Structure formats: C-alpha cells, structure tokens
Amino acid sequence: MQLTKEEYSKMYEQEGTKTKWWVTFPKAFFIGGGICVLGQGLTDLYGYLGADSKAASTLATVTLIFLSALLTSLGLYHKLARHAGAGTLVPVTGFANSVAAPAVEFRSEGYITGLGAKIFIISGPVILYGILASVLAGVYFYFR
C-alpha cells in the first residue's frame, strides 16, 4: 500500500491523539519518580534487614524486575504506562517490561516458537549492541 504524504497526513490527523503536555509531563515525572522512590525504599529495607549496601541494591533491582514482569504478565504495566508515558521507562523496569511483553504476547504459539523465539524481539537489539559496544570499548582500553 503506497500512501502519499497528503494521505498520510490526513490519516495522522484523524487517528493521532492530541496530548496535553501539561498533564502528561507531571504524570510521567511523578510515576517515574515513584518507581525510583520504590527502588530506594526497597534498598533501604533490605539494608535494614541486614544486607550490605551492594547486596541491598542487587536485591532491590531483582525485586523491581520481578514486579515489572509480574505487572506485565497481569496486563497492569500497560495500563500504568498509558498514564505515565515515558515515566515507566525507568531503565530496569522498562527493560523488564520489554522482555516480558513479547513473551506474554506470543505464549499461545508455544514455548519454543512463541515464547523462546519472540522473548527478545524488542530488547534483543539493545542487548546485542550493548555487548558489541562493551567489547569494542574493552579492546580499545586494552590496547590504549
């Protein structure tokens, strides 16, 4: 299907939503900030329970990843993201959602062709280029 620029612009105007930035910006800020406050609260809680600072940070990160994947599988993360927008892209929770969402979407196709093949469809390029960049940086600093 070939569209002209005028046809595309007309379709965009009909279907595009008009966002009210004065509403969406504060929502993203407060919900994203709330996720960060939750992470800090978990870190403090694990520290209070006896974990050293490194272990407490790791436990908080794992808890946030678990909660993000759980909310994604229950269909609640998407509802939160509709209100928070970019506020839910806090790195750990957003990445966990990007891994869990395709797994949930394609689970009906089976464990191998559905879940196994599609789980990294969104986050795969991030992982690939992250590893590639770290290898190149390592080689650069090794020979520097």
Results as ranks from 00 to 15, higher is better:
residue 60 A to K: 00
residue 62 V to L: 15
residue 62 V to A: 06
residue 63 T to G: 02
residue 64 L to Q: 03
residue 64 L to S: 03
residue 68 S to M: 00
residue 69 A to L: 09
residue 69 A to R: 01
residue 70 L to G: 07
residue 73 S to W: 09
residue 74 L to N: 09
residue 77 Y to R: 08
residue 77 Y to F: 15
residue 78 H to T: 14
residue 79 K to I: 13
residue 79 K to T: 15
residue 80 L to Q: 10
residue 82 R to H: 14
residue 88 T to I: 12
residue 88 T to V: 13
residue 88 T to D: 04
residue 88 T to A: 02
residue 90 V to Q: 06
residue 96 A to M: 05
residue 98 S to F: 02
residue 98 S to G: 10
residue 99 V to L: 10
residue 101 A to T: 09
residue 102 P to C: 08
residue 105 E to G: 13
residue 106 F to T: 13
residue 108 S to N: 09
residue 108 S to D: 12
residue 109 E to P: 10
residue 110 G to V: 08
residue 111 Y to D: 07
residue 113 T to Y: 03
residue 113 T to H: 08
residue 114 G to H: 04
residue 114 G to P: 09
residue 116 G to N: 05
residue 116 G to H: 08
residue 117 A to I: 11
residue 117 A to H: 13
residue 119 I to T: 15
residue 121 I to H: 08
residue 126 V to W: 01
residue 128 L to R: 02
residue 130 G to F: 06
residue 130 G to Q: 00
residue 130 G to E: 00
residue 131 I to F: 06
residue 133 A to Y: 07
residue 133 A to W: 04
residue 133 A to M: 10
residue 135 V to M: 07
residue 136 L to I: 07
residue 136 L to K: 01
residue 136 L to G: 00
residue 136 L to H: 05
residue 137 A to Y: 04
residue 138 G to N: 08
residue 140 Y to W: 14
residue 141 F to K: 10
residue 142 Y to L: 10
